[in-house]
Design a protein around this nucleic acid. Sequence first.
DNA 1: CTGGTGACCATTA
DNA 2: TTAATGGCCACCA
Length: 118
Amino acid sequence: MPYRKPPSNYEIIWETVSRIPKGKVATYGQIAELCGLPRQARLVGYALHNLPRGSDVPWQRVINAQGGISLSDLDGMYEEQIRLLKKEGIKFIRGKVNLYRYGWRYGWMKKSSAMLIK
DNA sequence: CTGGTGACCATTA
DNA sequence: TTAATGGCCACCA
């Protein structure tokens, strides 16, 4: 039987992020869940931070559970992510995205206080 | 093996 | 409303 190397967690995460439709966003924790890696939100951030150069993974569609950007603004990536999302039609209110409107599959997810936009 | 780290998260005050 | 806190655990040196 041909041996096939199981995909690394990074690859699983990248694959899942690639399934987020344009115009939608997902949270780090949500991606971890979908990957079968519950409570591994930080690993998702780690995986995206280490994306291969020139990758077509839509990393900008992953945001934190508060609807905000988790990147540092020191290297300009914070503004870059917002720019890319706005280009996809996502609106920011006071620096936050409304997850009820733009969250991927949120209609099927349990309501949680952390998802509310205050 | 071991210990530090992190593009996180939920809870609490 | 924000801020602090403790939990989380794969990854890497």
